[in-house]
Design a protein around this nucleic acid. Structure first.
Lengths: 221, 221
DNA sequence: ACTTGGATAATTGTATACAATCATACAAGA
DNA sequence: TCTTGTATGATTGTATACAATTATCCAAGT
């Protein structure tokens, strides 16, 4: 579990938080069949904990839409479909645009330098063909812009969606040709933000995600 | 609590669900000061329940970002600010656009007729100056389009945001001049959807929310 | 006066116990 | 054979008990 994947302090320390993360991952990577019942007792004994943290985790997952709880009946898996992923990308394409726009007004010099450092490092790892690091840096890049938008609402929803798709398809950037183009797109986005060209930043960030969708669908990833 | 305000089955029946709704409303309408500590015991005795449902509700609220839980320390209110509301409107303006676009492909004849019925009814209540009904119909209109987008992801996030701002400012459409314009905008949106003019539908739905922001800020609501 | 240490109280975290609800199976009757 | 009722077991809902952690207070020492 990478550090940037948790947005609740309690995730690190509390049992409930860990159970939540665990179940979320398990659902997203498909360890549960869709509509499968998630019995509190079974999960609890499997994980070696009591029912209490399991219940709390299940109720959190319900809020995220990953499980459906029918009162007095139980919790049932609501995995995300291929269409859900596609939808999320489209939604992200718009919101990343807004994020880049707002970053124009709020991004600090340090944050900008950090972005450029990420781009530089990414170039290196593309050369070395280090898929793992490329994905990691891509996450950092996007989340840095989320933060720079200075909107906790936008940051919250984008981080959620980003993690959502991230977990399902880690393989996105293992096409090194696409990774190269992607990093190039990152470059011009940062340039637009540095020049405080909000319209351009929004358009470029939007197109960037659209490109990502395109490269997915054409390659069947 | 109107029927369209709950998107979890469990809300109706379980104690946890009711406590969740109650605390959420209380936070949004400002019954708790920002950063105020929400002690499990206090809330439990206040509501006449045990700590268990309160804990589960608090953890759900944490996921929504309405409270911040510090492990072994407690839960603290994270109320939404005026800026948060503004941000939500901007985000909605984009996503309502997407929603209208997708509705072009998926909306059934019945759903379209329902939309037109809502518009017709709204005209009536504007004449009668029934603010309550106007707000209610406005919600129905938007949520019908969310549903018609045939995207559970988009529906989920838009419904959340819509409820968010709804609860904070019920007064939005009590300006009858604005309500008139709003309904006019609804009319042309439906027309665009009926004609399956996706670009136009998106643009109009987007502008519609922008107008809403504008009427808020200029009137200081 | 200020800090530090430790006892005590308050609060959260987790587990368990009990109550309420629902699913299943099976038998009785039409 | 099909329905229906009922008993039984399984599962969830809620409350409570206990453990772990943290906050508070006060006294002792510098």
């Amino acid at each position: 579990m990478e550090a940037n994947e948790l947005h609740k302090e309690s995730d690190k320390y509390s049992l409930t938080g860990r159970v939540f993360q665990r179940l979320r991952t398990d659902i997203l990577v498909g360890k549960y069949a869709n509509n499968e019942e998630m019995k509190e007792n079974t999960i609890a004994t499997d994980l070696g904990v009591s029912r209490t943290p399991v219940r709390e985790a299940l109720r959190q997952l319900e809020l995220e839409g990953l499980v459906k709880i029918i009162p007095n009946r139980g919790a049932f898996v609501n995995g995300i479909t291929e269409k859900d992923i596609q939808d999320i990308y489209v939604i992200r394409s718009y919101l990343e645009g807004v994020s880049a726009r707002w970053a124009c007004e709020n991004m600090t010099e340090e944050a900008l330098n950090e972005l450029e450092e990420i781009i530089y490092l990414t170039d290196y790892h593309i050369q070395k063909k280090n898929a793992e690091q490329i994905v990691e840096l891509d996450s950092k890049f996007h989340e840095a812009i989320y933060k720079a938008s200075s909107s906790r609402i936008l940051d919250h929803v984008l981080t959620d969606f980003h993690q959502y798709v991230q977990r399902v398809r880690k393989k996105s950037l293992s096409d090194f040709e696409r990774a190269k183009m992607s990093n190039q797109e990152h470059k011009v986005i940062v340039e637009a933000i540095r020049n405080k060209n909000a319209d351009e930043a929004e358009r470029l960030a939007h197109e960037h995600i659209i490109q990502t969708i395109f490269s997915h669908t054409t390659r069947g990833l």
